[in-house]
Design a protein around this nucleic acid. Structure first.
Lengths: 338, 338
DNA sequence: TTGAAAGCGCTAACAC
DNA sequence: GTGTTAGCGCTTTCAA
């Protein structure tokens, strides 16, 4: 049986309040008392019972992170960073996977399991703007992702439209005119696919290039296989293009593989740009030119914002919209003409 | 303020014990009583306070998963599977990153934060056999990894030696005689690198091929950059080889990239085999022949074993050693001669 | 079948 | 500067 406050108090010959004071760094304690208590603590190997403390204080020292799936590289890298930042703040992270499924996301928001945490960082993927009311929860929450805007919670996100536009402009500046897109979602307006496609179109418009739907590859998911399949289909249709914009790196890498299999040289014949700046983008052959959407900043800001909300739970404040800065990471798969 | 058992009891006109009985599916309750209570529960939107329940029961319904870093694909895929299995068992997972650092691993084992969980799945990387006593902890734990054997806890691991031997034999059967290794650790006997190198040497011995240290690439870490650097170094030294065994997929992919950059064709000039069967191995160019070490089975078994230990915490039982089955996944980067 | 009451280990208001 | 004590919300023994 683990030692309790009472055991320590008994050994040290003081009351539990005094022990509690020592543990919680209450300033006004006589040094000799403190010493006695500390001796008793180490003698017993006492550690405070966190569950009891939580019950009393209403805080757990844990936050939840809900995301689609850790086996998707983007989310794994995001989670790594969130956990890292949380640890620096002395908080642990409970990770939940939703599979990007709307029903599971909605369930999760009402899950009693969240009681084990003080708040939630929620990366939504299956929900849509219509579900915005489900975000009106009683616990502190920070929303990530591009599925829902102007919700009732703080929202940390990236400049999808601007970043996709910049990526497309990069290709145009490199001399490309027929820029295929991989990963579009039919009819989507909001969401990563919809927003990035909008940025793409803005860049075309600004350059006076007509939008050509025949070089847009639609996929439901954003796995590498989807990028590969979509590219195979474009090649099979025989449409012409001189660049590919993968709406994320994974798609771009899948597409790039198929191009190379088919004897198309990257970047010589076709330039390729991705989006996300995964670790992997640096090591593909050729290395992938991509957009760093500010993922580390997003993780850091999400944690800081959530902890701030938790600390000032009573303060009623309008939801904040926090936008990460992006940058183009120029590598081998696409580069400005010399 | 959230409703409590008392509130429900008051509304339903019963005692809190009765409400508790209903919530916990205690069988002997008069249907009319149950109905009243259920009505009150839904009227108030009552949910049991898990922290209070935990304090009382000593259980949290959470387990901890400690691993080096989620941004390493192997661990991300492992974590995804662990969380998936835990969820199926109604348990949540708290993820801790140690960076593979021995001191942080040792700290973690004594961390009070583990009190928020009922047990730990611990993937050790920095610790070594000398630290085996640190594993003698007071909470249920399942060890993963290849750093420590015959410890005081259950251990779920893979057949490193046999699997590496099989991978090497695969290359030999494909006609290779000069098989370079990437990712060895100087002087390591136990640990993934040491064990896999041992399997490699066993295969050479069995085939009557001399071990040649000049085609062994040493790296400290197992990131893609390490594989790339190590391969560059081998090429610079001008040593001859007709195959590469990457001690994990990430190393193999890094090495493969450098080979291709240097004009070496894979698998035509040099065959490449990895170890881990990451999702990525299926989509590289060429796709990577590798060893599936049974990662999904490991995740599933680790969760089941831990939950079993938690459920029967009193039962004293010898630590179990559980070994996953492996298989060679033949893809393009290395294949048997026709 | 249901109720009363103790107590899990801690924090914090209040008293001395 | 230190002690007493009342709960946080629940489970569970014991009694009715």
């Amino acid at each position: 049986m683990a030692a309790t406050l009472h055991d320590v108090a008994r050994i040290a010959g003081v009351s539990i309040k005094t022990v509690s004071n020592v543990i919680n760094d209450y300033p006004h304690i006589r040094p000799s008392t403190r010493e006695k208590v500390e001796a008793a603590i180490s003698e017993l190997g006492y550690t405070p019972n966190l569950t009891a403390r939580n019950l009393r204080s209403g805080r757990t020292g844990a936050i939840a992170l809900a995301l689609p799936d850790l086996s998707l590289a983007y989310f794994a890298e995001l989670a790594a960073q969130v956990i890292h930042e949380a640890e620096a703040a002395g908080v642990v992270v409970l990770v939940e996977q939703t599979g990007g499924d709307r029903a599971r996301e909605l369930d999760l928001l009402r899950s009693p399991r969240l009681q084990l945490t003080d708040g939630l960082i929620f990366s939504a993927l299956g929900m849509s703007q219509d579900d915005v009311r489900a975000l009106d929860v009683s616990y502190p929450m920070v929303l990530l992702g591009e599925r829902i805007f102007d919700g009732p919670t703080d929202h940390v996100t990236m400049r999808n439209v601007e970043a996709a536009r910049a990526a497309t402009e990069f290709l145009i500046a490199s001399g490309c005119r027929r820029i295929a897109v991989i990963g579009a979602h039919e009819g989507e307006v909001i969401g990563s696919a919809g927003l990035r496609l909008r940025g793409y179109r803005q860049a075309l418009d600004a350059a006076g290039i007509d939008f050509d739907e025949s070089i847009v590859g639609y996929t439901t998911l954003w796995h590498r296989a989807n990028g590969a399949d979509s590219m195979r289909e474009l090649l099979a249709r025989g449409v012409e293009f001189d660049a590919v914009f993968g709406l994320n790196d994974t798609l771009a890498l899948g597409a790039m593989r198929v191009l190379q299999e088919s004897g198309v040289r990257v970047p010589h014949d076709v330039q390729v740009v991705g989006f996300d700046d995964l670790d992997e983008a640096e090591y593909s052959i050729p290395s992938l030119t991509t957009v760093d959407p500010g993922r580390d900043w997003i993780a850091k800001t999400a944690v800081a914002t959530l902890l701030d909300r938790i600390a000032r739970a009573d303060a009623i404040e309008a939801p904040r919209q926090l936008l990460a800065e992006f940058r183009i990471v120029e590598r081998e798969s696409a580069h400005r003409a010399d």
